[in-house]
Nucleic acid binder design. Sequence first.
RNA 1: GGAGGUGUCGCCUAGCUGGUCCAUGGCGCAGCACUGGAAAUGCUGUGAGCUCACGCUCACGUGGGUUCGAAUCCCACCACCUCCGCCA
Length: 420
Amino acid sequence: MIDTKLLRENPRSFEIAAKNKDVVIDTSHILEIDQKCRDLALEVQSLREQRNKVSKAASNPNPTERAKAIEEGSNLKVELEQKEHSMVSLKEELDNLLLTIPNPAKSDVKVDKDESENEVLRTVGEPTKFSFTPKDHVELGEALDIIDVKKAAEVSGARFNYLKNEGALLEAALKDFAFEVLLKEGFIPVIPPVLIKHEVMDALGYTAMGEQDNIFDLEKDGLYLVGTSEQSIVPLHMNEVLQKEDLPRRYVGYSTCFRREAGSYGKDTKGILRVHQFNKVEMVSFVEEGKDDEEHEYLLSLEEKFFQMLEIPYQVLRICTGDLGFNAARKYDIEAWIPSQQRYREVTSTSTVTDFQSRRLNMRYQDGEQRKFLSVLNGTAFSMNRPIVAILENYQQQDGSVVIPEVLRPYMGKDKIEAK
RNA sequence: GGAGGUGUCGCCUAGCUGGUCCAUGGCGCAGCACUGGAAAUGCUGUGAGCUCACGCUCACGUGGGUUCGAAUCCCACCACCUCCGCCA
């Protein structure tokens, strides 16, 4: 949620920022409701003041005075209840309107319509060259008996997969590798819940802008399945006040994520690139106001480090406003080279949401006498399947075997995956 | 699932026979004083909103209710603790 003070000061800037994200908002209507709400609050306040005075007078031992005060109080009570009711419903209306306003993008983010306009900031490494025709990960995975999509379809339906043998080990190795690196950086390891309350998801802002279609909803229990790990890691500090000395506070989480993938019927139907369920190693940072830009570069540098250590060619994108999403003020993606598709595909994503989520989740920190909202950032270390796809395809050999990246060998206990 | 208990301003805590609570005290934090500087000590401040200010309102897990008046009584819900049952 945005700061209403800022909205009052400069409504136009929020309208433009929303338009850049392809969202239409009517700030004059919102501010009108806001004004009505404030006026009504003042009325209620003065009625309460009278009520308090009268009820104090009612403790007067004199029976006549007492009866008079009680009489007066009864009348006030009726009026007050009425005004309070309309105030509550108006406040609710205002809150719902405020929740439709997206987090404005930062000034360095390109204003443009959709993902085709994202900026490539840099390309690292050269697309892998082969002296033979490279296979895709599905063919490799089946031949090596490490990926089984067909059986998963029988058991669970489309867009599920089994990882078996070295496939399963590869995921575990990536997780262990990321944890080892990030623990050295001072991150706090956490295994979060994967079901969260509706109200928490709403407060996080992931149900705005039609994104709820992508979320598995356990209606019976009032719970959502998380679509990404930070949805349950960020609220780790909801309704808390941290101390400034505790910042930055960084977490590395590992959890399963679930996505309905509604509306992506035609996309990536083959293989394990886009599935309903996957595991993810995620980084989440809580930092001081104004330090989020610096932290954003740090998280991106860690993501790049992982792919450099794996020696997989990649490019870094800065996402333009039209592709940014409701919460993010800036987002960088890393795309790894996928030989079978002859193009780069998204493997990580890091965003700063500034204080947009802190405001609703009530996450603050004490800075001397002041209490400020935390800035929150998230970034993918490894969102499983995708780095596995990248490894299999980039490290494949002519005979159909796959060499394991050097940094992962200690975790795998072998240096090559071969057909049995 | 059954029985009982608890939930107070960053942390701990008093209050819980309804009106002197416009919520106590300690710790922590901030400012000031003392000091050559620091420690220690003392004083002041330290939940949120409105206000230039005086001040006013709201806040005692959440939401309702009773009442002229609720932290205090009633109901529902949530969370935590203890015990029983069931189960990885």
